[in-house]
Design a protein around this nucleic acid. Sequence first.
DNA 1: TGTGAAATCAAACGATCGTTTGAGCATACG
DNA 2: CGTATGCTCAAACGATCGTTTGATTTCACA
Lengths: 204, 204
Amino acid sequence: MNSSANTKERILTAAEALFAQRGFEGASLRQLTAAAGVNLAAVNYHFGSKDNLVEEVFKRRLDQLNARRLAALRLISGQPDATLEDVLGAFIRPALDLSHDGGGGLFMRVLARAFAEHDDSLRKFLSDNYGHVMRQFTTEFARMLPHLSKEELYWRIDLVTGALTHAMSGFGIIQRKSDVSEVTHREQTAAHLIRFAAAGLSAP
Amino acid sequence: MNSSANTKERILTAAEALFAQRGFEGASLRQLTAAAGVNLAAVNYHFGSKDNLVEEVFKRRLDQLNARRLAALRLISGQPDATLEDVLGAFIRPALDLSHDGGGGLFMRVLARAFAEHDDSLRKFLSDNYGHVMRQFTTEFARMLPHLSKEELYWRIDLVTGALTHAMSGFGIIQRKSDVSEVTHREQTAAHLIRFAAAGLSAP
DNA sequence: TGTGAAATCAAACGATCGTTTGAGCATACG
DNA sequence: CGTATGCTCAAACGATCGTTTGATTTCACA
């Protein structure tokens, strides 16, 4: 029972990388277990099925992402002088942090794939585990943008979500130049995303 | 040779719908040919392979989409008083038209999937055949936004692309209310997307 | 040290995948 | 009319898929 935790982690990490690279259907359990260095039957033994493995891959990262986002939001939700940029920062910075530490750099790609998939069960799983976070952020956005109707607000949050998911899935990510540190580059990226999203959200 | 054109079209239409619904790997040729009402072997006979079919699905829609976009861009590229909103309109409106007529409503979902896939051969195909369109629009955007550095411009165009692809893939599409016509609703949607994108692009 | 549960392993299961085959059908042309 | 050509069809190909099985190994604990 000691090495089982190790095996499960190895499978989750290999699965995350392969799902990001080849998709949920494109990555086979044989490729996956070979990359993880474990036996083929280990997936079904530890996770029950491939579908369950997919959900566990999401759970591992989303749990900490949600926790960090809500913690960041709590810091500013009470303050009357909080700005739209602050709320966006609470949403964006935890995702960028996740991309650069904890080996979760590939997770945003997996998330982008999940958005592109219109598979109902996966959508429902994401909505169940993720919905309350978006609801809290929506409330804060509504407070910052009182001139927007509810319909307009939903529209723009959806557009922001699309832009950020697209960008953070590593598509157009601009490479860090060798003369800037990793932390600096991350902060520049965050500033870039926030500036764009804030301008789009507060359009007249 | 008469019915072949009919069969090819039936396959392309069924493939577009199934690719949008289940993805390129998730949609099998057996589901696909059954939905099209043709024999299983018809795909390999008419298209050579499944990969070729995928490319043909893109070709059919992207050829007309690019033609319309470039035609719209040509109308304003010479005019000195053209606005950023005009350029965005030339980019967005043809895509919305495609979504609502010609049965291409599902194509934007297919395109969103292609963006999520990091498959190199598919990316190369899209870049080779349709990169020149993005290059022309980028030139116009640069003309409208002279205060942006080249790096910032690329960043923001990428973010706009993500937002529009996400929105037009039918994710958060707000349903048309029964008391507005289809044309009116389309124009409202276009205005919404353009307003958001213009504000994001011209952020300070 | 002996024992039983947990974990790993090679092997095989049936199902489904993309593709190929060769016979049969249709139709246009000499 | 005969024939060549383009097309459709059922059937089968080998490969690979997710999953299951039963034996074997590992290891904490009595």
